[in-house]
Amino acid sequence: MAKIKVPAPPVPDQLKPKPKRPGKTYGPQTPVEHGAEAGASAVGWIDERTSLSGGARWMMFRKVPKGTNWFYTLGSATMFAFLAQAVTGVFLAMYYDPSPKGAYESIRHINDDVFLGEFVHGMHKWGSSVMVVLIFLHMGRTFFFGAYKYPRELNWVIGVVLLILTMTMSFTGYLLPFDQRSYWASIVGVNINGTGPLVGPYLNDFLRGGPYFGATTLSRFYSIHMLLVPGAIAALMGFHLYLVARLGTTAPPWLKPKTAEALREEEVSA
């Protein structure tokens, strides 16, 4: 098939691509090429000023042991469950009213009136269970794979603190819908705290902000739920991940290290 040559349309000189200057043949030349490079050059601009790429490379491109499998994704899964909780929680806060007279009504409004409200509230509500399940699976993986042993004990300790903080989130979040179930469950939960000898009674008064379930109890729980504990979780999660990158992951327990005999044979044959 013969190519038909279409004559070039008359273009004003200033719009015609400029001929390459001698000696300048690298880098993007045309606006289209510049456009294609925009992402890379933006990243380059930031990296030139922050040197973050070194850290990102250190974090992302790590050596992992042979035998790494799907069980190793449970930690990331927990983190993404937390991120989902954080994002949906921030948006729920736009409609939520943490006052004893307005809380139930605002939740009803979110569920019944707000566009996608029931869905976002549902994600937050069920997502909390997902996070608790995942954190226990992650803990089980760490335990059964022996990944808590030297030098990773501190990471286990941080993980346990994260588990406790997640439980605190579940406890304080349960009150917020402020229906009969959450009210009585919180009464019972606070009183369980009170059964701790000596400190229990004071802990109760701190949680309620007084001797009875009062005007500020709900906003107290809300503040702990959305400001205090999430900040602590995010910070500890960052440190948890830093230690994972710093210490590396463990091989699964069914992969035995090579015996000295086998190593020697390998050396001899090499």
Partner: peptide, 18 residues
């Protein structure tokens, strides 16, 4: 006292009034 805090025996000392 709050519920769950016994008052017999050492209870009254283990669970002080606030």
């Amino acid at each position: 006292r709050d519920p769950g805090e016994p008052l017999d025996g050492v209870g009254q000392y283990l669970y002080p009034s606030t």
